[in-house]
């Protein structure tokens, strides 16, 4: 089974985010990046499937040069090779364009399964995987928590609200968006890390993807992004201040006498 896993790099969870002067993005200079959380799980899922059924796991990443780091991590964990679309010169928020680029890369491979994380921790659109499926003409299931491979098809368990699940069967090839927590993610071992350097990372340019400048022009989109800003607070909590001992005493006092929870 050949599995393509789409992975993206996002600023690390705890980053202190500062918005750029033009309000269009966050200041990148001081940021560190990591693999998007649910993408980690997508990779893990692919590796488990490969271990059980054989085949190949191919990482697909779009991003600037720094994403090599993420790719290497994925290769170290056991992916076989990687495709890298360097989009430094045509970065866009337009999901359709991004899906077009990813789809073009995927179409060059005959994959049985395409996996993505269910959403990214930066923009959080949560749409790329599903749009990609439609672009590729593949059936999909999202927020997947369990996969059972059968002959020519897969059975998956999808998460729904409040502890409910849907169990569906899809013909292969298919696309799944993977939810965090589907399995425990492995740690890259020293062996895997040392082996990663021998694995292929293929750089894909626009023309490699059979696309031209015009294909990545987002100016005609009907959706316009304007600005980023720190949210205004709606209701603020009553903030307790002082040194730890002090706030602890205040809190216990308030819980007792104001909130009367004891």
């Amino acid at each position: 089974m050949k599995i393509i896993v789409c992975m993206k790099q996002v600023p690390v969870q705890d980053s202190l985010l500062k918005i750029t002067d033009d309000s269009r993005w966050v200041q990148e200079a001081e940021l560190n990046y990591e693999i998007n959380e649910s993408d980690h799980y997508a990779l893990e899922t692919a590796l488990l499937l490969k271990e059980e059924h054989g085949g190949e796991v191919v990482i697909l990443t779009m991003g600037p040069r720094r994403v090599k780091e993420a790719i290497k991590q994925g290769l170290a964990k056991g992916a076989d090779r990687a495709l890298h679309i360097n989009n430094e010169s045509f970065t866009t928020l337009d999901i359709f364009i991004n899906a077009k680029l990813l789809a073009a890369a995927i179409q060059q491979e005959e994959a049985d399964l395409v996996l993505t994380g269910l959403q990214t921790d930066d923009y959080g659109f949560g749409q790329t995987g599903v749009i990609l499926a439609e672009k590729l003409g593949l059936p999909h299931a999202s927020i997947v928590m369990e996969i059972l491979k059968q002959d020519g098809s897969i059975k998956v368990k999808r998460e729904m609200e409040s502890g409910w699940f849907q169990s569906v069967e899809l013909p292969l090839p298919a696309l799944l968006t993977i939810q965090s927590g589907i399995s425990q993610i492995r740690y890259a071992t020293i062996k895997g890390i040392m082996m990663a350097k021998k694995k292929e990372i293929k750089e894909l340019s626009l023309s490699d993807l059979g696309l031209a400048e015009g294909d990545v022009d987002d100016s005609t989109s009907s959706l316009k992004f304007h600005k980023l800003y720190v949210p205004e607070k709606t209701k603020q909590a009553e903030l307790l201040e002082g040194d730890p001992k002090d706030v602890a005493a205040q809190l216990v006092h308030k819980l007792k006498n104001e909130a009367k929870v004891f």
Binding site: P11, L17, I19, V26, D121, D122, Y123, G124, L223, K224, F225, H226, K227, L228, Y229, V230, P231
Partner: peptide, 10 residues
């Protein structure tokens, strides 16, 4: 965006 840390206008 960024898990609720920042708002974005469209």
């Amino acid at each position: 965006v960024f898990q609720g840390k920042i708002d974005a206008d469209f």
